[in-house]
Write a protein that binds this DNA or RNA. Structure first.
Lengths: 221, 221
DNA sequence: CCTACCGATCGGTAGG
DNA sequence: CCTACCGATCGGTAGG
């Protein structure tokens, strides 16, 4: 894992040979269930329906598969417009159109959108497993799941205050109070619900999400 | 992992031979950094300063070490009085003496107490790693980290409402809004701060915790 | 508590 | 894309 993780070309996965794509799909599934190290190249090959050695025609090393998956993941996060990547103009527009509730709901939708794609859900899970063992993945995760969102919400609440959409207050504290909920949803539905079926997770998470926004706004005003 | 995890005798670890204790300490450290499967018996032995085969004089299998650690963990959780194990009488007494803030701060202290013991901190981390791979650990974790605390806080808020310490409202929603923060702290400081020194984690987490209780109470009243 | 060993499995390569 | 192989490492055992 010498190279840095950067947003690569999304096409990287789709355009290549069918086998390469199937290797990646099998790897995502296995890595997310057993962890990167515990999942073997033989198992990946078996799922694809080829011999282990044939994988090495598509990837130099096992690690190269992991890197490809991470690059795809980051590219995809950027594409679907993950909450914290929202620019100031979009924030302003959303606030103008539908107020604080609009922005909060929109951000929730973005998360559900990401969780709603099985492939992305699996990669999130994989990253969570590797988080404790891999420094690079840990810092990536911390940036994506803690630092960036907190900064985003602090900025958003500050804008709402300036526009007098909400009363003045500690924007940083507000960001933490509001965003904590997302971490809770992440743990409860993404990590702890491997055994529950996919659609239930989406429905439940989105129900709690709506209730959260409602509760939060009632208290703040 | 055929047996169920139950609160075993805490002495189980301390009373036995010194070597057995050192094996467990080494295992906790290695399992929490590399994960159970990735940490080898040879590594454990090397840390202890004996040969791998000698471990088998103290434990029948690798899995038996893991089971011993989990039993110790559960017993220790019960001993320090983890928040959700608080009985109704204690809740009432705390509320009488120092109001909602007293109960909330007390619960925060309990968490910091658990996180403050390096051994417990490491086992929490270990459990988090294994969570995604082991159904038994996953359900244990969900019970301890989601279900029980949510039920505890829902009950606590209901009591506060009855005693008119806080205005009436949706106790379940309140529990979720209040408790989400703990999950955020757990992720930020326990899982994502392996690289940061121990004392800073405690200070930072407790600072955020105090701010959280203050913010939450201001909004609720 | 040790040495010496076991079969199983790992990631990866040679050569076609 | 395959067969056949490599050294390294795994958890665990025999026997003292």
């Amino acid at each position: 894992m010498s190279e840095e993780i950067n947003a690569g070309n999304i096409e990287e996965i789709a355009v290549e040979s069918d086998t390469r794509e199937r290797i990646i799909d099998a790897a995502i599934d296995l890595f997310s269930r057993k962890g990167y190290e515990a999942a073997s190249m033989r198992e990946v090959a078996e799922v694809v329906g080829i011999r282990k050695s044939s994988i090495y025609s598509h990837f130099k090393k096992k690690e190269e598969i992991l890197e490809t998956i991470l690059k795809y993941f980051i590219a995809e996060l950027g594409k679907t417009g993950y909450q914290s990547s929202m620019d100031d103009e979009t924030i302003h527009k959303l606030l103008m159109e539908s107020g604080p509730e609009g922005l909060m709901s929109k951000a929730g939708d973005k998360i559900n959108e990401t969780l709603g794609v099985p492939r992305m859900q699996k990669i999130w899970r994989m990253i969570s497993i590797e988080m404790c063992r891999n420094v690079m993945i840990r810092s990536f995760f911390k940036r994506q799941m803690i630092d960036q969102p907190l900064r985003f919400w602090e900025k958003a609440f500050r804008i709402m205050m300036v526009r007098q959409l909400i009363p003045a207050g500690d924007a940083a504290a507000m960001a933490r109070e509001f965003y904590s909920f997302t971490i809770y949803i992440y743990l409860k539905y993404l990590l702890l619900s491997c055994d529950i079926d996919f659609e239930s997770i989406k429905t439940e998470a989105s129900k709690e999400s709506i209730s959260h926004v409602k509760y939060f706004l009632e208290r703040i005003k």
